[in-house]
């Protein structure tokens, strides 16, 4: 099995049946997982912040860091694997976006990430099939290309699927 590990702001896609895409310890970050049943391709991006306007240099260097630059690039990467360029037919799953207890608006970057991601998906006419977002715990996400199963883990909890 080959494992593609994504750090903050990384994105990737694969249609190799033995591949697994994984990203560790999402705090306020959100992993967007795209699955294409037609081409059996899986893609993921590890988004840290909602909008690229706060640092355009960083957005150019690592577009996956921001929702507004990362999602379009992930769709392009999926298209490179034969998927529909506008994302038609994709199954979308979201995980992450946690917050500290008693947070205020300033510290709820997870929620702002989620809203930005949904807004962009909406602009493509897309929406998540399932999501495991918010709460006060970090998440590690892995997805197998062969099974398409999205597995979540968090210290102190048994693993679960979305």
């Amino acid at each position: 099995m080959s494992q593609m590990v994504l750090g903050i702001g990384d994105l990737g896609a694969s249609n190799h049946p033995d591949a697994e895409i994984k990203t560790y310890a999402l705090g306020s970050c959100i992993a967007v997982v795209l699955l294409d049943p037609q081409t059996r391709t899986v893609g993921m991006v590890h988004i840290a912040l909602p909008e690229s306007k706060i640092n355009l240099v960083k957005a150019k260097e690592k577009p996956g860091y921001f929702a507004d630059t990362g999602l379009p690039l992930l769709l392009q990467e999926m298209a490179r694997h034969g998927c529909q360029p506008k994302g038609k037919g994709l199954i979308i799953k979201l995980a992450g976006g946690a917050a500290i207890m008693d947070h205020n608006d300033t510290f709820n970057i997870g929620k702002r990430n989620l809203l930005a991601i949904k807004k962009i998906l909406w602009s493509y006419g897309l929406g998540p099939r399932s999501e495991d977002v918010g709460g006060t715990f970090s998440r590690t996400v892995s997805v197998s290309v062969r099974t398409g199963e999205v597995i979540l883990s968090s210290p102190g909890r048994p693993n679960w699927k979305i």
Binding site: G27, S28, C29, A98, I100, D102, G135
Partner: peptide, 17 residues
């Protein structure tokens, strides 16, 4: 903790003052 560098099961389970 928000940046994904917590210490495990306790991550995010504290109060913001």
């Amino acid at each position: 903790m928000m940046g994904g560098q917590g210490t495990g099961s306790d991550s995010m389970k504290y109060h913001l003052r």
